[in-house]
């Protein structure tokens, strides 16, 4: 399933709410939580990370991974958390509105 445009940033921020992750971890986490439904291209995820970092919503630092490998870990900042809350309620409103319009699946 393709991502809706503009939702990637929100997904990344949501994924980081449980703690810092490295880039590959984020990709895996989104894929896992969406039950493999959302295919995240790393090619678009990586620039998104840089973008979020520049906006100050996430911060990064080098650390050691679970397998004792060095990797760059991203964590949510206070500003990022606030932004996520806003995005989350907007998203909820959007989903509700769309669901209201669409209703149950029509019988063919």
């Amino acid at each position: 399933m393709e991502l809706l445009p503009g939702t990637l940033d929100m997904l990344v921020l949501r994924t980081l709410i449980f703690g810092p992750l490295h880039g590959y971890g984020i990709a895996r986490a989104i894929r896992g939580t969406s039950k493999e439904a959302l295919a995240i291209e790393f090619g678009s995820l990586y620039p998104a990370l840089k973008r979020l970092e520049m906006k100050g919503w996430i911060a990064s630092k080098w650390d050691t991974s679970e397998l004792n490998r060095r990797a760059k870990f991203y964590r949510l900042t206070a500003a990022g958390r606030k932004h996520l809350t806003q995005e989350h309620s907007k998203w909820a409103e959007f989903v509700e509105a769309v669901t209201n319009v669409m209703g149950p699946v029509p019988v063919p």
Binding site: G23, A27, F42, R69, R70
Partner: peptide, 12 residues
């Protein structure tokens, strides 16, 4: 570092 973590070709 990510390339080493991921599976071959997984990151594109």
């Amino acid at each position: 570092a990510l390339r080493l973590l991921a599976e071959r070709g997984e990151l594109g």
